[in-house]
Amino acid sequence: MARIFAYIVHKVGVADDSATELVAAAKKIDPAASPTAIVTGCGADLDAVCSTLRSSYSEVWKIAHETLAYPNAELIRKALVKVLPQGSILLVAHEHFGIDLAPGLSIKLNSTFVSDVLVIEGVDGVTLRVVRQEFGGQVSTHVRCDISSGAVITVRPGAFKPLESAPASGSVVDKSSEIGVLVARRRYLETVVAEAGDVDITKHSVLVSIGRGIQEKDNVAIAQELADALGAAVSCSRPVVDAKWLEKSRQVGTSGKTVKPKVYLACGISGAFQHLAGIKGNPFIVAINKNPKAPIFQVADVGIVDDLLEFLPEFTNKVREMRTVSAK
């Protein structure tokens, strides 16, 4: 079996949650595997990450270089091509860095690329069997991958539960001298932090969240009226922001905000993983969707199959009615 590596994303000296998830994914490929972590960066932050990774990996490859201070996928790809043994399997989280790195890396390594894997069923000979999703999670597929010349695999964040087994006490191997001079044709300039909006959805305990099912800008008022009646705020999924119906600061998800409400009303939201990843703290989730097969119903606590444009105004009226009754 090929040697398995996990590229670990980190920030300000802290390894991403995927660090432990990738160990679990590696064990699904080969239960006997003891995967090797690879981390790039420089300075004290990098050392801090290496020392935490020693508790979940038996070996940690450290690649330190000033040019790697910011994770530029082009430079890291070149470094990985230099250090990875032929035929290796490399795992990386399917998020903005993995998406940037992995497809091109697979070409340069001449290995197979497998994207956004949710389940690893096992390996038969040189065939890796995995489960992926298509159509925004509406359907899943069994996929067979020929990994005879190695593989680069991006793994869905949160899909693999970290193992509870005894921690390792791995060694750190410094590979920095093997990468040579790296030159990039894409250069990192700066990070621009998202602007704060008029409403801070991360501070609200009740959210009326709308998706593409709201259909047009004028209908946003329907959700706002319900939110006003409940004492909640309106948040949304990405297409609502893309269409400029609400500000970016209202978006829940990987490329938006992480919210921790008590109650989350998902109205006309299908339940894509990038959206769900922004809902934390195990809230009571209500899904209102006209499609009974929408994936959101798999994660919601309560579901209603209905047209939100009709349901929400009637619900708002009921809430108002109840308020007047209880005020008397």
Partner: peptide, 27 residues
Amino acid sequence: GAEMLQGSREENIDKLLELVAAKGGLK
């Protein structure tokens, strides 16, 4: 999976209001 409310719209609204209120959804 979600508990699907299968009633009429009025019934679903009543039930939902009850559930949401119980979970602290009315402030």
